[in-house]
Amino acid sequence: MNFSYHIEGGNFSRAGIASSEVKKILKQLNVNPTAIKRVVVALYEAEVNVVAHAYEGDVHVDISPEGVTVVVDDRGPGIPDIPLAMQEGYSTASPEVREMGFGAGMGLPNMQKNCDELSIESEVGKGTRVTMKTRFNA
């Protein structure tokens, strides 16, 4: 099963919509609650990253009996140094975003912890593609 969602950069009031939809779908499919929680945490962080850093993005979710693959593709500034971005506590978020309680440098580490495979491809000035795979019986 495939689902797609569009994300608007800068629009925090819509952050979490894709995660919420995916949560409902996985619940209906009787996926185990631990796996649902992991997928949802990872996807929410990815959504917030697009809202906080990019101009726009698309979420593609592929659900199979074995697990979920989430691809988040954005048009944005890109990430010049991925290992640095992965460090807990490192963030380039604006002061406004930080004031909301985001931008603590925990998003990418949370994504890493809550999926089984994380890959990040990024081109500076173009955008970033994040792929996260989570197996239901990991």
Binding site: K37, V41, Y44, E45, V48, M100, G101, F102, A104, M106, G107, P109, N110, K113, N114
Partner: peptide
């Protein structure tokens, strides 16, 4: 008050205290 911290560490059924 850090949303990612809550996202990463709060548990189902928690009462969450925040100023946000």
């Amino acid at each position: 008050d850090l949303l990612s911290d809550v996202m990463g560490h709060a548990k189902e059924g928690d009462a969450w205290v925040t100023l946000q």
